[in-house]
């Protein structure tokens, strides 16, 4: 019960911190002081208070986009086990609900972008759905490998106590799956090398360009939803990378928070050392992610479960 409460609170409160950590890491690598860690919270609160401008072209779909996306990723967060504990909602097959909730959010973001009738947002939407086509199989190959390595068919089983022994039994597969899922994480959240969240307006390629016309509270919701998505996927990757079983209830959550922040630091390092890929090369990287997780799965086919 307490663990559920902690998870809900963390899910609601912690996501913008990851954005702050990524920015801070990038600033540190570049030798700058950078924005305060809590800056994303201030940004979101400021935006939620602001007035806004709605295009004449838009309909109710335009506001449904951020709202449904935010709702979908929050619910997806309830399916993810955090802190090594089973998730608040878990059942056999919840991984499919998880993936399709993210897809629901994506669909509504996409049609909200198309609602404006702007070519830029149309381009962003087209890219988003195209890259998702390739990211989904990579994600599912990874989940298949984990299904083969652990007992049960829910995210709580895949990312539960079995992860540590999976590393012992099948380290090569786990390395491949971890790498593949990290690429999926970067792609799903439009980070470098897929997209550069720091460029604004017409210069960005995917996510930011889809929300070009959203302002005020709508933009605040978009930013918050994106942060939650980053947090949810990061907590999965963090669990794979740090499958520590503390045994101490009090240590459980600090370890979880530290490992998620570590993923944020790694994202910051990636963003500091890489440049954005050319758009036409992005599919290659995603196919590469499919191959990584796919090989991770195939390696396991020979051995009995």
């Amino acid at each position: 019960m307490i663990d559920t409460a902690v998870q809900v609170v963390l899910l609601l409160v912690m996501p913008p911190l990851l954005l702050g950590v990524i920015t801070k890491t990038k600033a540190a690598i570049a030798g700058r002081v950078g924005a305060p860690l809590l800056q994303p919270y201030h940004d979101i609160i400021k935006l939620l208070r602001k007035g806004s401008v709605l295009s004449r072209t838009t309909t109710w779909v335009f506001l449904a986009g951020p709202a449904v996306t935010c709702a979908a990723v929050l619910l997806a967060g309830l399916l993810v086990p955090m802190g090594g504990q089973p998730a608040p909602i878990r059942f056999a097959g919840d991984l499919i609900l998880f993936a399709y909730l993210l897809a629901l959010g994506r669909f509504f973001t996409t049609i909200a972008a198309l609602d404006t009738g702007s070519s830029f947002e149309g381009m962003g939407a087209a890219r988003e759905v195209t890259f998702a086509c390739l990211a989904e199989p990579a994600l599912f190959f990874g989940l298949l490998a984990l299904a083969r390595l652990t007992e049960g068919l829910s995210l709580s089983a895949f990312f539960g106590p079995g992860v540590a022994s999976a590393w012992v039994d099948a380290a090569p597969s786990m390395v491949l799956v971890l790498a593949g899922l990290f690429i999926v994480l970067l792609a799903e959240n439009s980070r470098i090398p897929f997209d550069d969240p720091n460029t604004h307006l017409e210069l960005t390629m995917i996510h930011e360009v889809m929300v070009l016309d959203h302002g005020g509270p709508a933009l605040g919701t978009v930013l918050y939803g994106a942060a939650v998505k980053l947090f949810v996927l990061s907590s999965l990757v963090a669990r794979l990378a740090v499958p520590m079983e503390t045994g101490q209830p009090l240590l459980r959550w600090p370890v979880f928070i530290a490992s998620v922040l570590m993923v944020a630091v790694v994202i910051g390092l990636v963003e500091s050392t890489m440049a954005r890929l050319r758009l036409l090369h992005v599919p290659n990287l995603l196919v590469g992610a499919c191959l990584l997780t796919g090989f991770g799965f195939i390696l396991l086919l020979g051995s009995p479960r």
């Binding site: 806004s52 709605l54 295009s55 709202a67 935010c70 702007s118 830029f120």
Partner: peptide, 21 residues
């Protein structure tokens, strides 16, 4: 979420065209 967002956006008075760069 939709209701809350619509309420937050109610103050909107300006209805320009879509941003055309």
């Amino acid at each position: 979420a939709i209701v809350a967002l619509r309420r937050a956006m109610r103050t909107t008075a300006i209805r320009p065209g879509t941003w055309d760069c």
